[in-house]
């Protein structure tokens, strides 16, 4: 495994060096806000990052396995189409924007606009699991896939900020524990799940526990609520065709 010291390079040079490492596993230490790491990668490489990754980590990627020991900034997994990103820390805004495949595991909190316009197609079923809570507009315009918010940090703040699921027309958001109903968009519907109804997300929960060495029983100790959409053709009746 190649180990690269990010402190030795400026951003462009670091990306160039990374692109030219022809090994299945690369570790980068002293990451300090460098942007676009793993961006556009179409491979199965494992990229281990230590430090704080800059914006658009893994954007447009298809396939890499990125493990970040530290915090991510904005746009983690932006428009990602396949791959796995595991963040041992928190992430900023728009994580998983337009994501259409792969998985994003975030140990702590996520910022605003998490998973906006995520979508699914056949076997491409993206998933985002957040250990803490997420900001406003979580799952806005969501068109498929799964977002899970666990609220494990127990700081008594709402699991999601306002406008959760606005304009959502497919997919599902799972909230663990107390649901901030006042923050859910009017087109959404909630269902509190029984223990035997957790099957669709059990694998994701177990992976979270495994990646971050967390007790699965503790995760399962609170009820889960599934948020889906009432109307899949939300805006169909808003328009009148007209020929001038």
């Amino acid at each position: 495994m190649t180990v690269i010291d990010a402190g030795q390079y400026d951003q462009a040079a670091l990306l160039e060096v990374l692109a030219n490492v022809n090994e299945p596993e690369i570790e980068v230490v002293h990451v300090n806000g460098q942007r676009y790491l793993g961006c556009g990668w179409k491979n199965r490489k494992k990229l281990i990052l230590r430090g704080t990754a800059g914006n658009n980590l893994g954007a447009f990627a298809e396939g890499p396995h990125i493990v970040l020991y530290g915090n991510g900034q904005e746009g983690v997994g932006n428009t990602m189409s396949e791959g796995l990103i595991v963040v041992h820390g928190r992430v900023g805004d728009i994580a998983g924007y337009g994501m259409r495949g792969g998985a994003l595991y975030i140990r702590d909190n996520a910022g605003y606009r998490l998973g906006i316009h995520m979508k699914a197609y056949l076997q491409k079923q993206p998933v985002i699991v957040v250990g803490g809570r997420a900001g406003a507009f979580t799952g806005e315009y969501m068109a498929g896939g799964t977002i899970i918010i666990l609220g494990l940090n127990d700081d008594n703040r709402p699991l999601v900020g306002p406008w959760c699921g606005t304009g959502m027309y497919s997919g599902a958001i799972y909230l663990r524990g107390e649901v901030p109903y006042e923050h859910l968009a009017p087109n959404t519907t909630c269902q509190v799940l029984q223990a035997d109804e957790l099957e669709p997300i059990m694998d994701y929960l177990q992976r979270y526990a495994e990646y971050f060495d967390y007790d699965i029983e503790k995760i399962l100790s609170q009820p889960f609520t599934r948020i889906t959409t009432v109307n899949k053709r939300l805006y169909k009746h808003m328009y009148t065709g007209f020929v001038s």
Binding site: H117, S170, Y235
Partner: peptide, 21 residues
């Protein structure tokens, strides 16, 4: 069209007004 856009068949395809990034 669904295969090309990678979205479910017969579902609306909405592009939000802004790019959210």
């Amino acid at each position: 069209v669904a295969r090309t856009r990678m979205i479910p068949t017969w579902s609306d395809a909405i592009s939000p007004a802004p790019h959210h990034d």
